[in-house]
Design a protein around this nucleic acid. Structure first.
Lengths: 106, 106
DNA sequence: CGTGTAAGGAATTCTGACACG
DNA sequence: CGTGTAAGGAATTCTGACACG
């Protein structure tokens, strides 16, 4: 029981761990927040907490930046493609699980 | 892509957040580690990192403690029931996802 | 625009110990 | 046995700023 929640969207990871997971610097991660690309929660004392979904989003952002895309453009893309949109994601994750379960290759 | 990993078992949560998630004190959480009930990872500098699975396990431990069961007994139960055994869990999580997807009620 | 860095403070975590029982 | 607490130190995170470009 209680074995199934949206761990992917639960904001529990602090910035240092996010750096390790993504390879990005704290500075860059905070900057992308300033540019409205990611929205971490805050603990009572003000410490940023990220979700695994945020981590994936950051990797995606970093890749786009490598391609020279500006943060303002990246934001527009996310909105237009509805990428990282909560409902869209949930669907995607569940489908992934099902595929993995049946050993399907998409 | 890269949208599907074992977030449930990835050790990225620090003890303060685990306290909030479980309602347990740091002392108790560390003690259960001493009693070989949970096995957090450590960051380079020695800070404990827990997974969501560890969090669930801790809640389970706390419930058993409320029933008066000793930590040594809890450990035996976990081993005997193969509860929180990696393979067993993975199966369970995936089935849960599938049930949720099809709106089944078990 | 995007990111690095040094600065100082506040909050977090760690260990070992004493306490009670 | 299981858990609380005070203690001191080490590591983390935060913000605002200066830098380069």
């Amino acid at each position: 029981m209680a074995a199934n929640e949206s761990y992917m969207e639960k904001k529990v990871i602090s910035i240092g761990t996010v750096c390790e997971l993504t390879g990005l610097s704290e500075r860059r991660i905070r900057y992308y927040e300033e540019r409205k690309l990611i929205f971490p929660d805050r603990s009572k004392s003000g410490i940023r907490k990220y979700s695994f979904l945020d981590v994936e989003k950051l990797v995606d952002i970093a890749n786009k930046r490598e391609e020279g895309i500006q943060t303002s453009e990246i934001r527009k893309e996310f909105i237009k493609e509805k990428k990282y949109d909560e409902k869209t994601l949930r669907e995607k994750v569940i489908r992934g699980q099902i595929n993995a379960y049946f050993n399907k290759r998409s």
